[in-house]
Each structure stands twice: as structure tokens, then as C-alpha cells.
């Protein structure tokens, strides 16, 4: 299946079928269905606690669906995932170049030799994100913005068909965000499927043609200008974070 859709601009990259992902039986994503077109550039928007990051984690297989299923057109090898920076041990004694080289995992594997080509690619990726000359710097000495550039360089090396970004521009200054958004646009231009969890609605409107708006349940999924209509945003805001200890069993799950 992955072969048929590789590089294609149409057809689904991903289909969600009645997907529910729960923490301790409380749903964070509730009965979500829809398809993500291959080659699309989609923002996932919604209030805090809406299940945006949870959805990405379910897509990469980090969380198991409580109900429903996810159909992938791409194999796990073709998926690049940028988790929230908080999940990374920034104090680890590793330098910038070695961090980027981890992106070559699918070629070099866990035990294989790191090729000269991979090293060249890693240097090119660092150049592309504006970090030329940073190769030997320990990652602990980088600013938040510089570190995010490193992670983008690693994604460049991964050469993924489906790229999932979890809040990639949180705590990042305007210039870095601008540079990284250019890379996102470049990926889109190359026919890759890109999904980004975002908080900044202006960013969503300006740079992302497609939007998935969730507040635990699906509010809207489609062209950004339609999905980000005031009525939908109001609806999303109204579905505030909730964790109901007295909640009954969901009817469709019973």
C-alpha cells in the first residue's frame, strides 16, 4: 500500500476510523474519523487539553487506541515525528552533528556504520536550518530556538513522507519560526504530507491550507478558512478541559 501512494499528491496518507484514545479510560480524543490527504499541509488546532498531542502520539503508535483504528498509507520508516521538546534530555552529552545524524537511523540502523554521505547530508541539513559551524557544539549549550533548528535538521535527514510536528514553534522567536515555516513549506512543495500541532491561529490561517480543529471531539476538518470559522472556534472554546470522575460509560463503547 505504501508503494502505491509514495510521492502521490492525492489519496489518503492516513485514515482515522472512529478513533478514541483514552488515559485511564477518560477519552482525550473521542470518536474521531476522517482522512488526511497525501501531500497535504495540515494544522491541528484546538484549546489546551483538546487531545492534539495525544492524537499525534496515537498516529506514531506511542499510545494505543481505546477504540477505533488508524490506517497508515506509509510504513513507520516513512514517518518523521518531532515530539514536544520537553520529552528530550537536553543535558545529555551529545553534540549537534551527532544529534542530526540520528536522523539517518533508517539507513544506518542501530548498529550500522555511519556513511560519509550521511555526514555530508547532516552538514547540509545544518546549513539549511542556519546552523552552519555548530557541528561540535554540545546540545546543552544551545538556545531553545537553536535546538529546535537542530531537530528540524534531523527531520530533514530522515527524509520522511509523513512529517508530524508537535508544537514546533512554542517558545521560539519570530525569526526562527519564520525560517522553520519555510522548511515546512519546502516539505509541502516536495509532496510530503505535513501535520503540525499549533496554538497560534494566525499562523494556522497564514501557512496551513488544511486544518483539523479538535476539542477532544472533531469540530472541523478541511480547508482552513472554513474550519477556522468563528462558530467553530466558539464551539471549541466551549468544550473546556474536563475530567469527569462521575462520567458514565460512553454509549458507543458499551
Amino acid at each position: 500500500m505504501s508503494g502505491a501512494t509514495r510521492g502521490a499528491k492525492s489519496g489518503p496518507a492516513l485514515s482515522l476510523h472512529d478513533l478514541t484514545v483514552a488515559y485511564d479510560r477518560h477519552p482525550a480524543v473521542h470518536h474521531l474519523s476522517g482522512t488526511l490527504a497525501a501531500g497535504s499541509l495540515t494544522a491541528i488546532a484546538g484549546p489546551n487539553g483538546a487531545g492534539k498531542s495525544t492524537l499525534l502520539k496515537a498516529i506514531v503508535g506511542e499510545l494505543r487506541p481505546a477504540e477505533g483504528r488508524i490506517e497508515h498509507a506509509f510504513s513507520p520508516r516513512e514517518i518523521g515525528y518531532l515530539p514536544q521538546a520537553a520529552e528530550i534530555n537536553r543535558r545529555f552529552p551529545i553534540n549537534v552533528l551527532d544529534t542530526v545524524l540520528l536522523g539517518d537511523w533508517h539507513q544506518s540502523g542501530a548498529f550500522g556504520r555511519m556513511s560519509a554521505a550521511a555526514r555530508t547530508q547532516a552538514r547540509e541539513a545544518l546549513l539549511a536550518v542556519g546552523l552552519e559551524g555548530f557541528e561540535k557544539r554540545p546540545i546543552g549549550s544551545l538556545s531553545a530556538g537553536q535546538f529546535q533548528r537542530v531537530l528540524f535538521a534531523r527531520l530533514l535527514l530522515q527524509n520522511a513522507r509523513l512529517i508530524l510536528l508537535d508544537e514546533p514553534f512554542t517558545a521560539i522567536d519570530a525569526r526562527t519560526t519564520h525560517d522553520l515555516l519555510e522548511i515546512v513549506a519546502r516539505w509541502h512543495g516536495e509532496g510530503r504530507t505535513v501535520v503540525a500541532v499549533l496554538h497560534d491561529f494566525d499562523q494556522v490561517r497564514t501557512h496551513f491550507p488544511q486544518t483539523l480543529l479538535i476539542a477532544r471531539e472533531l469540530i472541523g476538518w478541511g480547508p482552513t478558512e472554513e474550519v477556522m470559522a468563528p462558530a467553530n472556534l466558539l464551539k471549541a472554546r466551549a468544550m473546556a478541559e474536563r475530567w469527569d470522575d462521575t462520567a458514565g460509560i460512553c454509549e458507543t463503547a458499551a
Binding site: 515525528y81 515530539p83 520529552e87 528530550i88 545529555f92 551529545i94 540520528l102
Partner: peptide, 16 residues
């Protein structure tokens, strides 16, 4: 090293 530094990445690339 990958597991210590960025376990999420290792999981995402199917690194066991």
C-alpha cells in the same frame, strides 16, 4: 544513546 537522549525518537523510528 538514542534511548537515553530521546526515547520518543527511538520509539518513533521503531528502534525497540
Amino acid at each position: 544513546v538514542a534511548e537515553c537522549f530521546d526515547p520518543g525518537f527511538l520509539r518513533a523510528v521503531g528502534g525497540r
